[in-house]
């Protein structure tokens, strides 16, 4: 089981790295933010997996925080540029 969780964590980490490509490449700011929204979800998945792996309950809180504040970042970025 531990090996499976390690493998899942590694795969998710590679996904985060792949998301870096889109965040760095763009081309528009919205694309970058889309990448960040994806990374918020993937990072949360990574943190909950690590929470089970290391038996640290607080990492689930961290996942919750990451998901919630990733949304805040997106709301901040898109304000003023979106039509109603």
């Amino acid at each position: 089981m531990e090996i499976a969780l390690h493998a899942v964590a590694t795969v998710l980490l590679l996904c985060v790295l792949a998301g870096l490509w889109r965040a760095a490449r763009g081309p528009s700011t919205r694309d970058r933010v889309t990448a960040f929204a994806l990374l918020g979800t993937t990072g949360a998945a990574l943190l909950v997996v690590l929470a089970t792996l290391t038996q640290t309950a607080a990492l689930r809180d961290a996942a919750l925080v990451l998901v919630a504040l990733a949304t805040v970042v997106v709301v901040v970025v898109t304000r003023g540029t979106a039509e109603r």
Binding site: L13, V16, F36, L39, A62, L66
Partner: peptide
């Protein structure tokens, strides 16, 4: 840098 924040949290 935002991506760095996620990776650092991990």
């Amino acid at each position: 840098f935002l991506v760095l924040g996620v990776v650092l949290a991990v």
